[in-house]
Design a protein around this nucleic acid. Structure first.
Lengths: 259, 259
DNA sequence: CTCATAAAGTGAACCGTATTCATAATTCAC
DNA sequence: GTGAATTATGAATACGGTTCACTTTATGAG
C-alpha cells in the first residue's frame, strides 16, 4: 500500500516547509536571532514538532546549509557543463558562484558559520556528512574542468596534480567571497564593486597561470562580453539588473588606494 | 596628577586580563560555549565587572578578535619588511600568515565568525571599527609589496590597479585558510597536507601571474629552501616542528583524485 | 463502524546562561 | 575626615533552546 510512501513524502514536505521558514527568518534577522519557536509557529506547528525533524537548532542550520548547497551546486554545474573551452567553463563557474552568492548572501554566511564552529556542536553525524556530501560536487566540477582542459591540451598542468590546481583555483573564489562579504572591509577601502574585482582578477588568474593558449587572453572588452554571454545563455533566470551589474561595462576607478 | 593615567592603565590591564581569560576558555571549549560568568570568575571578578568593560558577549568576542589581529599583523609585517625581492616578500607574507593560522586556529575561526554574522549584533560601533582597523594593515602590507615590486620593475601590473592585485593575491590565501580549516572537507579528498597545497599553489600564482622576471621561478626545491629560510630567518620563534612541517621536503603524493 | 494501537502533535515547564540593576564598597578631591 | 563619584557585586530577571507527559489523529484489523 502507498500509505508508507505518502507518510514519507509528507515528512519530507514538512521538513522543507521548516527549512524554508527558517531560511526566511534568517534572511530577515540574521543567523543568531533565529528562534526555533518562531520557525515552528510560522508554519502553524508547535515547537515540539520541529524538534521531531531537527534534533537541535544547530541541526536545523546544517540542514539548511546542505539544502541550499544543492541549489548552489546545480547553478555551478550548469556553468561547468557549458559547451565551451575549458578556460571559459572555469570562468563561467566563477561567475555562477558569484551570482549565487550575490543572490543568497545568507547561504554564504551560513556556510562559513557551519564550516568553522557549528560543526563541533550537537548536530548528528548524519547531518554533518550531509553537508560535506552536498559540497563535494563543487570540487568534482572544478577537477573535471581541469582534467578536460589537460586532455584537450588547453591547460598546462606544469606537473601539478589536477586536484591541486582545482583547489587553488577555487580557493581564490572562496577568498574573494569572504572579502566581499566581510562587512565594512572593502567598503572602507573604497572598492566600488568587489565582484568586479573578483571577475577581473579571476580572469587574470586564468590568463596567466594555467590556461593555454594565451593568444586569446581575456581583456576588459572580452571579459564583459563573456560575462554578458554567460548570464544570458546560462543563467537567464537571473534578473537583468544583476547581470548588468556583474557585466558593468565602464571601468570602475579604484580610489583611495593605500600609499 | 597621575591618578587619571593610573586609572586608565589599570582599566586597560584588567581588560587585557579578561581578554586573555576569554581566549583561553575559547581555545579549550570553542566559541559557542564561552560563558561570561566563567570568564569573570576565572579572573576573580564578578560578572557585572566584566560587563563594565564589554557591553555584551559579542562585544567581548570582537575585542578578542581585534586584539589578536594586532599580533597577526605583527607577524605578517615582519615578513613584508624582509630585505628581499618583492616576489619573495609576498611569498613570505603568505608563509607567515599560514604559520600564524596554524598556531592560532581559534583566532582564524573567530575572525570568520566575527566577519560574517557577529558584526550585526549588539557590539558597539567603536568595537566594530576597531576590528576593521586592526585588519587594515594587512591590506596595506600587501599593497606596499605590490607597489614596491612595480617600482623596482619586478612586477608586471598589466594595467591593473595595485590594490586589485593585492586583494586578489590575498584572497587566495584567505580561501586556502578556509579550505584548510573547513573540517572534513579536505580530509575527505585525501589531501595529506593542505598547507603544502597553499604554499605550492601560492608559489605557482606568483610564478605565473604577476611577478617578473620569470627566469627564476619557484620550483619544488627552491620552494622548500625558501620556506626553510623564511622560517629560520624571520620566525625563529616558531618551533622547529612547525617549520619542518611547513617545509616538508619530500613531495606529498595526492591520492584519491576525483575521476 | 469500532476499537486497539501506533504515530504525530502539543505547549507548558525546565534549564542554562546572557544581561541588568539596586546596593555595597572603595576611591578621590578637598 | 567627609561627601561625591566611581567601581564592584551577585542575586534577580529575561530569554530562548530543549524536553516530555499528555492529547489528538491516523491506521487497519475485525
Amino acid at each position: 500500500m502507498g500509505t508508507r510512501e505518502r507518510r514519507l513524502r509528507e515528512l519530507a514536505e514538512r521538513e522543507q516547509l521548516f527549512l524554508d521558514a527558517a531560511r526566511e527568518q534568517i534572511s530577515g534577522q540574521g543567523l543568531l536571532t533565529l528562534q526555533m519557536a518562531k520557525v515552528a509557529r510560522s508554519c502553524d506547528y508547535a515547537t515540539g514538532t520541529l524538534y521531531q525533524h531537527f534534533s537541535s537548532k544547530e541541526d536545523l542550520l546544517l540542514a539548511i546549509c546542505a539544502d541550499q548547497a544543492e541549489k548552489r551546486v546545480a547553478t555551478m554545474a550548469r556553468a561547468a557543463h557549458w559547451e565551451a573551452p575549458s578556460r571559459d567553463r572555469m570562468f563561467a563557474l566563477m561567475v555562477a558562484d558569484m551570482l549565487f552568492a550575490e543572490r543568497h548572501p545568507d547561504h554564504y554566511r551560513l556556510t562559513q558559520y557551519v564550516f568553522t564552529e557549528a560543526v563541533w556542536g550537537s548536530a548528528s553525524q548524519r547531518r554533518r556528512d550531509a553537508v560535506i556530501e552536498a559540497h563535494r560536487p563543487i570540487g568534482d566540477l572544478v577537477s573535471q574542468i581541469v582534467t578536460d582542459g589537460i586532455d584537450a591540451g588547453d591547460v598546462d598542468s606544469r606537473g601539478r596534480h589536477p586536484l591541486e590546481m582545482a583547489l587553488g583555483q577555487y580557493a581564490m573564489t572562496i577568498g574573494m567571497h569572504h572579502m566581499v562579504h566581510a562587512e565594512g572591509v572593502l567598503e572602507k577601502e573604497n572598492v566600488p564593486d568587489p565582484y568586479r574585482l573578483l571577475l577581473s582578477h579571476g580572469a587574470a588568474h586564468l590568463n596567466g597561470l594555467n590556461w593555454q593558449p594565451l593568444q586569446d587572453p581575456f581583456d576588459d572588452v572580452a571579459l564583459d562580453a563573456l560575462v554578458t554571454r554567460i548570464c544570458s545563455t546560462l543563467f537567464d533566470d537571473f534578473r537583468p539588473a544583476e547581470a548588468e551589474r556583474a557585466a558593468q561595462p565602464e571601468a570602475q576607478p579604484i580610489e583611495g588606494a593605500p600609499q
